[in-house]
Simulated assay, not measured.
Amino acid sequence: MTDATYWDTRYAESTAVWSGDVNVALRDEVSDLTPGTALDLGCGEGGDAIWLAAQGWRVTATDISAVALAKAAAHAARAGVSVDFQCHDLGSSFPAGTFDLVSAQFLYPRGEVPRERILLAAAAAVAPGGILLIEGHQDFGPFAEQHHAHGDISFPEPDEVIAGLRLGEGEWQVLRAAKHDRLQNGPDGQPAHRTDSTVKVRRLPG
């Protein structure tokens, strides 16, 4: 089963896979930025992209699943915002241009393309003065049993993520590289603690 087929099937199985709310880390890290152009990688059903557009960002959002993108476009229309939704397998194609904000929220490809390679492309898409924001997991939290079959997924430390970006010396500023606790409802609907991490870097202007 291809990555696209897996995600199309998953998104087709239920009305909503995700909550539709903006990721808390994105909201907290972006709220004080001046809106410009934004790229949302792995946008799913569009919660982050729609929130960004509502804040005044000009948003391009991409996902591997055409089913997810159709749902996201419908949600954006209902919210009265404009988002450029594009279908990409980020291992083989990537949205053109550079952006003031590139966001990768819990982006874990299931295919053969390493996550690090996609994040390198994400860094290359950041405009001078722009922000790359990467949110990741540090453990499976309440979903450990559910993800047992995917035990080969690794959760790199923030410093490892930064090392993998191969940021040029004197070209970037690390604004945040930290782990943090997050309360998340588990598969049984009960809240549970999970450790996530935030990497936020800025490409220096000029």
Rank of each mutant, 00 (worst) to 15 (best):
G91D: 07
L26K: 00
S103A: 15
A61K: 07
V67E: 11
E157N: 01
V24G: 04
F140A: 02
G206Q: 12
Y108E: 02
Q146P: 04
T37F: 03
D32K: 11
L39R: 05
T5Y: 07
A177Q: 00
R203C: 02
L107V: 14
S65E: 06
I64Y: 00
R78L: 15
E157P: 07
G186D: 01
A127F: 13
V22M: 02
R202D: 00
Q173T: 06
Q86W: 06
Q146W: 07
D152H: 15
G130C: 11
A61L: 09
I162Q: 01
S93V: 01
L165G: 01
Q138L: 13
V174A: 01
T5F: 07
H148Y: 10
W57A: 00
A121W: 06
R182S: 08
G186N: 03
V102Q: 01
S31I: 14
E169A: 13
Q173A: 08
D152Q: 12
Q184K: 13
F155Q: 04
V59N: 04
A163F: 06
F143L: 10
Y6Q: 03
P156Q: 03
V22G: 01
A74Q: 12
H147K: 12
I162E: 01
T60Q: 04
D40Y: 07
D8I: 11
N185K: 14
V201K: 07
S103W: 15
D63C: 12
G20I: 09
F106H: 11
I162G: 03
H180L: 00
R202P: 09
G170L: 06
R110C: 00
D181N: 09
G164V: 13
A54F: 05
E169Q: 08
E145K: 15
E157L: 13
E116I: 15
P156L: 05
G80I: 15
W57R: 02
D32W: 13
K179S: 09
E45R: 05
V81P: 15
V161P: 05
Q190D: 03
A53W: 13
T37S: 10
L204I: 15
T98A: 08
G111F: 10
A79K: 12
T198G: 00
T34H: 06
T37G: 00
R110E: 03
D89K: 12
E116C: 10
G164T: 08
G141M: 02
G186F: 05
Q105F: 04
R166Q: 07
A73H: 12
F140M: 03
G189H: 08
D63H: 14
D89L: 06
G151T: 12
Q86T: 10
R115S: 04
A79H: 11
